[in-house]
Computed example of a mutant assay.
Amino acid sequence: MYCITREDMKFGHYLIPARTSAEVVNTPQYHEVNIPGLHLRIAINLFNIHPKKHLGVPISEIEINNEFERCAYGSAKSKMIGIEIDTQGDQVYIDAGDKFYRDATLSQWNVEKIFGENTPDDLTKAPYSHLKEYRLESIIEYLEEEFAEWVNGNCEFTILTEEDIENGIGFDGAGPGDRILSDKGLEQFREKQLEYQKRLERTGFTYRFKGGLIWE
């Protein structure tokens, strides 16, 4: 599963910017997130680590004398591509789409962080619970459908021509008459997608909403 760092992480001369994507290496102890007692070990690519003296420039772009490679007999045999960090559940947003959280639930209090006091009737309540909890999966589905409606009605699209298909433009299996986001439409999509991500992230979870589109 992946996660996203909430704030800048600083280690000596190095900086990992907020909203950096990382891979969760260990299996979390709990299905709850957003708690300081949740130990996580995350792996971060060197491309996402920046020296403080060269902010905005990944370490991998300014390595000196191939310092991340272990060479033998003049050729590189091994290369360091990332690091691992021990952190806590309240330092990252965790992927709600991972199968580990398939049966996870959110309390009414957390659901209200997303929807306010008007909880949608379409959300599925958790079975066998005396508390007012909702299935995380149904919350993702509701937000995804809502986002897909917005994308369909607000984003700018380009209609593919036969020439586009011949030039390899479009998604796998696309044909003339299918549509894809224009450059402007992609910008509109990303901006709105981030809004939806941040709504969900109020609960400690994150998710890459697709907006009803095919992404390769």
Rank of each mutant, 00 (worst) to 15 (best):
R41Y: 05
R41C: 07
I42H: 04
I42F: 03
I42G: 07
A43F: 04
A43E: 12
A43Y: 05
A43D: 04
A43Q: 09
I44G: 09
I44N: 07
I44T: 09
N45W: 03
N45H: 08
L46P: 00
L46I: 00
F47M: 09
N48Y: 05
N48V: 01
I49Q: 03
P51I: 08
K52D: 15
K52I: 15
K52G: 02
K53M: 13
K53Y: 12
H54G: 01
H54Y: 14
H54N: 03
H54W: 09
H54C: 08
L55P: 14
G56D: 15
G56Q: 12
V57D: 03
V57Y: 02
V57N: 09
P58N: 02
I59C: 06
I59R: 02
I59M: 11
S60W: 06
S60R: 08
S60V: 04
S60M: 13
E61G: 00
E61T: 01
I62F: 00
I62P: 00
I62A: 06
I62G: 02
E63L: 05
E63V: 10
I64T: 10
I64F: 01
I64A: 07
N65F: 06
N65H: 09
N65I: 06
N65L: 10
N66L: 06
N66A: 10
N66Q: 12
E67P: 02
E67F: 02
F68K: 05
F68S: 07
F68H: 13
F68W: 03
F68Y: 14
F68D: 11
R70A: 10
R70D: 13
C71K: 12
C71L: 10
C71I: 14
A72Y: 08
Y73A: 13
Y73I: 08
G74Y: 10
G74S: 11
G74R: 08
S75G: 04
S75H: 10
S75R: 11
S75K: 12
S75V: 13
A76R: 09
A76V: 15
K77Q: 15
S78A: 14
S78W: 07
K79Y: 05
K79G: 01
K79L: 05
K79N: 06
M80W: 06
M80N: 08
M80R: 11
M80L: 13
I81R: 06
G82E: 01
G82C: 07
I83D: 05
I83E: 09
I83C: 08
E84L: 02
I85E: 12
I85P: 04
I85V: 15
D86E: 15
T87Y: 06
G89V: 01
G89C: 03
G89Q: 04
G89S: 08
D90K: 04
D90F: 03
D90A: 03
Q91V: 05
Q91C: 12
Q91W: 02
V92W: 00
V92P: 10
V92Y: 00
V92M: 12
V92N: 11
V92L: 12
Y93L: 11
Y93M: 11
A96M: 07
A96S: 14
A96R: 02
A96G: 15
G97A: 14
G97P: 01
G97V: 02
G97R: 02
D98M: 04
K99E: 15
K99I: 14
F100W: 13
Y101P: 10
Y101I: 04
Y101T: 02
Y101M: 06
R102T: 14
R102H: 13
